[in-house]
Design a protein around this nucleic acid. Structure first.
Length: 566
RNA sequence: UGGGGUGUCGCCAAGUUGGUAAGGCAACGGAUUUUGAUUCCGUCACUCGCAGGUUCAAGUCCUGCCAUCCCAGCCA
């Protein structure tokens, strides 16, 4: 279902430069091992795609490996539904972890043993202060913390307490295993960080085997070490944690990968924090994590974004350490670029206007051969039926058309793509003055869309034969949020205030080429002229879903606006 | 009033051991066009957060400011 990745070149970014240098100095004997370590507490979004492309791309580019590891150390937030979706999304993006699928929870026994080792070395202790007391003892950003009274417990007592923690003798929050580092450290993270907490919750993989769970800072570095990762790539907010990452491995005396941080992706007028994504789903603003308007990988997949487009996008935005805000237009460009090159282009009408070709025989039907994608000869051709009565897009007709309007208007001639030139001779209206039908004549000599006399026509319309077209329900998806506001929340507004109420429009009576009635899931096509494309039908198996690209919308309005401005 | 990062065109982002500012998006011109799409050509930073300094020469070195992000979960 995913596109294939055809090329694998060495990525060009500062992390690749570090790896290159390490390869030169033989730091890891030329070995390159990365990992993508999501916590299964939600669906993957476009920000994760950056990390996936980076980690798997680095591995691929240097002939190394990239593991998929679920960082599942907090059972109260994690679910198997999430691990399944994450695996699917990574695969769909075109990456493969082969047999290197790991879970932090696989290491719980080893992690426990390492914790015992630290206790035995006098480098960890069981604290019995309450959460609130611990917070007070930690000090502030500007003031040092102070030692817990339990910091000096004997090794024996610590060992005993920790084992009893594991055996479930205490309630949640009663005790906590902490590293004994420095309560006065200017780096707050180093002020005796928590290593293990009691949490009597079932884990999605280990069930109720454990009631104590290791913290991220203790787990992540050890997992990396056990998997012999060389370059542990993560986002900037973990920079403060790196000294702890190194401290744990150094004090355990085990293999030490290096942590490298990069800036996470921010996309304009888009939310990506898991908290807000969950909110959108739970409060019903969207149909689910994979709603086509979501910034999730699965949402973009349903919206028709090709995996290659997302990969190219991640390539284009680069990898650096400066906090960024990438314009959504860059993502859209990547999508259009991919669609333009590879998706079949069909015709469809979302707001039909009937056209009767008066001089065309009543019962005649012809078929015209269309190129599926004029830019891609390998895409092949298809036959499209044509007859006397057609539908065209309502926007493609204007009764009092300005000179610059190139489409159909009374007395004007246009081309029906790959079919004939037609001229509008009459406009029929209902009692309300609404245009309900156009009477036209066609030029039989213009068959195929060209004329012997070489006369030019400015407009080319898409069309559909009423007798042959499939009626479908089209869903028009726009961006979930309005594009006027940066959503920086600096004006005190909630991100939900920026939800675009018109982001989903359901159009019941639309008409498409007959061939589209058999559209398969995962099939994408771009509509001629108006730029709609079909996306998969995962959750609406009975009806095709359509979507349009942003730059092609409201074409005439844009042109008109531009001309007025002049 | 602490520590750790980052500051190159509207948005991303390259800038090698100092040698005289890549590329992409957006925008704006123009050509081609059976999608007003695509494609194509052209324009778009005398300047690199600011101020000093070193040097024949600094985005790249030094000093001092300023701005901004992250850290006080028994989250990751």
């Amino acid at each position: 279902m995913s596109d294939n990745i055809t090329e694998s070149t060495v990525p060009k970014n500062f992390i690749a430069a570090i790896i290159e240098k390490d390869n030169e100095t033989g730091k890891y004997d030329g070995r390159v091992a990365t990992r993508f370590p999501p916590e299964p507490n939600g669906y993957l979004h476009i920000g994760h795609a950056k990390s996936i492309c980076l980690n798997f791309g680095l591995a691929k580019g240097f002939g190394g490996t990239c593991n998929l590891r679920f960082d599942d150390t907090n059972p109260s937030k994690e679910e198997v539904e999430y691990v399944d979706s994450i695996k699917e999304d990574v695969h769909w993006l075109g990456f493969d972890w082969d047999d290197r699928l790991f879970y932090s929870s696989d290491y719980f026994d080893q992690l426990y043993a390492f914790a015992v080792q630290l206790i035995k070395d006098g480098k960890a202790y069981v604290d019995s202060l309450s959460a609130e007391e611990i917070r007070k003892y930690r000090g502030t950003l500007t003031e040092p913390g102070k030692d817990s009274p339990y910091r000096t417990r004997s090794i024996e007592e610590n060992l005993d307490l920790f084992e009893r923690m594991k055996n479930g003798e205490f309630a949640d929050g009663e005790h906590l295993l902490r590293a004994k580092i420095d309560m006065a450290s200017p780096n707050v993270i180093m002020r005796d960080p928590a290593l293990y907490r009691i949490r009597k919750v079932a884990h999605h993989r280990t069930g109720d085997k454990w009631c104590i769970y290791p913290m991220y800072d203790f787990t992540h570095c050890i997992s990396d070490s056990l998997e012999k990762i060389t370059h542990s790539v993560c986002t900037l907010e973990f920079e403060n944690n790196r000294p702890l990452y190194d401290w744990v491995l150094e004090n355990l005396g085990v293999y030490r990968p290096q942590q490298i941080e990069f800036a996470r992706l921010n996309l304009s007028y888009t939310v990506m924090s898991k908290r807000r994504l969950i909110q959108l789903v739970e409060e019903g603003h969207v149909s689910g994590w994979d709603d086509p308007r979501m910034s999730t990988i699965s949402g973009m997949r349903r919206r028709g974004y090709p995996a290659a487009a997302i990969r190219n996008f991640c390539e284009r935005i680069g990898v650096a350490k400066a906090t960024n805000m990438v314009d959504f237009a860059l993502l859209e460009f990547s999508v259009r670029e991919e669609l333009n090159a590879h998706s079949p282009r069909y015709m469809g009408v979302i707001n039909p206007l009937k056209v009767v070709i008066e001089n065309y025989p009543e019962d005649k039907t012809e078929e015209f051969e269309f190129q599926n994608n004029p830019e891609d000869p390998d895409a092949g051709t298809r036959m499209v039926p044509f007859s006397k009565v057609l539908y065209i897009e309502r926007d493609d007709f204007m009764e009092d058309a300005p000179k610059k309007f190139f489409r159909l208007a009374p007395g004007r001639e246009v081309r029906l793509r790959y079919a004939y030139y037609i001229k509008c001779t009459d406009v029929i209206k209902d009692e309300n003055g609404e245009v309900i039908e156009l009477r036209c004549t066609y030029d039989p000599d213009s068959k195929g869309g060209g004329t012997p006399d070489g006369r030019k026509v400015k407009g080319t319309l898409h069309w559909v034969s009423v007798a042959h077209a499939k009626e479908v329900e089209v869903r028009l998806y726009e961006h979930l949020f309005t594009r006027e506001n940066p959503m920086d929340n600096k004006d005190g507004s909630d991100f939900k205030d920026h939800i675009n109420p018109d982001s989903l429009k359901v159009l019941p009576k639309c008409y498409v080429e007959p061939i589209l009635g058999d559209v398969q899931p995962g099939f994408k096509c771009q509509f001629e002229r108006i730029g709609y494309f079909c996306v998969d039908k995962d959750s609406t198996p009975e009806k095709p879903v359509f979507n349009r690209t942003s730059t092609l919308r409201d074409t005439w309005k844009k042109i008109e606006k531009k001309q007025n401005a002049k």
